[in-house]
């Protein structure tokens, strides 16, 4: 009987300490915020979210290029440098898109679906030229995707959701497409210069080109 009452006291104490220390109000109550300012509509929002994954896939592909050209047996530090820089740039693009969605009142739920383990499209390249060509194809693909967002967001075209998102389209064409077209032209120029040298001076051409890339001069 004494034993039983001791047990009772112990249980009561345990419960008491639990209540004193274990209970915290961590979640704040929901606030009623008007939502008629949130004007982005579904098919458009969806495309924008998908673009985050696109940009990060590009980032990872450039990351893999950087890794490949960093290898001791490949030894192209100039190529590695421009590709690592591009990887971080693509990541910045993804962050920029996230920032835009946040500004427009988006991303209040299902955020984990935004980034789904992006992986590089390829992990080895025959030489610098083939990596540059892959990079140009990748950029052209990203450009098509951005144009595709603009098309969708100009005319979401679902019942009752007709909303031409002028601002988003302007932002995409002004900021993103400008960078895409400039970047593509730069890559095409590099492929052209390196490609010409490779005709007769394969290894030496790539060696010299790599040192140019490393010193940061425009080639």
């Amino acid at each position: 009987m004494f034993k039983l009452s001791l047990l009772f006291v112990a249980v009561a104490l345990f419960v008491a300490t639990q209540e004193a220390h274990g209970k915290m109000t961590c979640k704040l109550p929901q606030v009623q915020i008007p939502d008629d300012w949130i004007t982005m509509v579904d098919p458009c929002t969806k495309k924008m979210k998908e673009q985050v994954q696109e940009e990060l896939t590009a980032a990872m592909t450039y990351f893999a290029m950087g890794a490949h050209f960093s290898k001791d047996t490949v030894n192209r530090p100039g190529f590695a440098k421009i590709f690592f820089d591009s990887a971080s740039e693509e990541r910045d693009h993804a962050i920029k898109i996230i920032g835009y969605l946040l500004m427009r009142g988006g991303l209040t739920k299902d955020i984990s679906q935004l980034i789904r383990d992006p992986q590089p499209l390829s992990e080895a390249w025959a030489d610098g030229l083939s990596a540059l060509k892959d990079a140009l194809k990748l950029e052209a693909h990203v450009t098509r995707k951005i144009r595709d967002i603009a098309t969708t967001c100009e005319e979401p075209g679902r019942d009752g959701q007709d909303f031409n998102d002028y601002h988003l389209v302007d932002w995409l064409t002004g900021d993103f497409l400008t960078e895409q077209y400039e970047g593509q032209r730069d890559l095409a120029g590099k492929i052209s210069n390196l490609g010409k040298m490779l005709e007769a001076h394969g290894a030496l051409g790539e060696f010299l080109f790599d040192k140019k890339l490393l010193s940061g001069v425009s080639v």
């Binding site: 929901q30 946040l102 991303l107 209040t108």
Partner: peptide, 8 residues
């Protein structure tokens, strides 16, 4: 980071 950047 993005989660804490939303307006809510």
């Amino acid at each position: 980071s993005s989660h804490f950047g939303n307006f809510e």
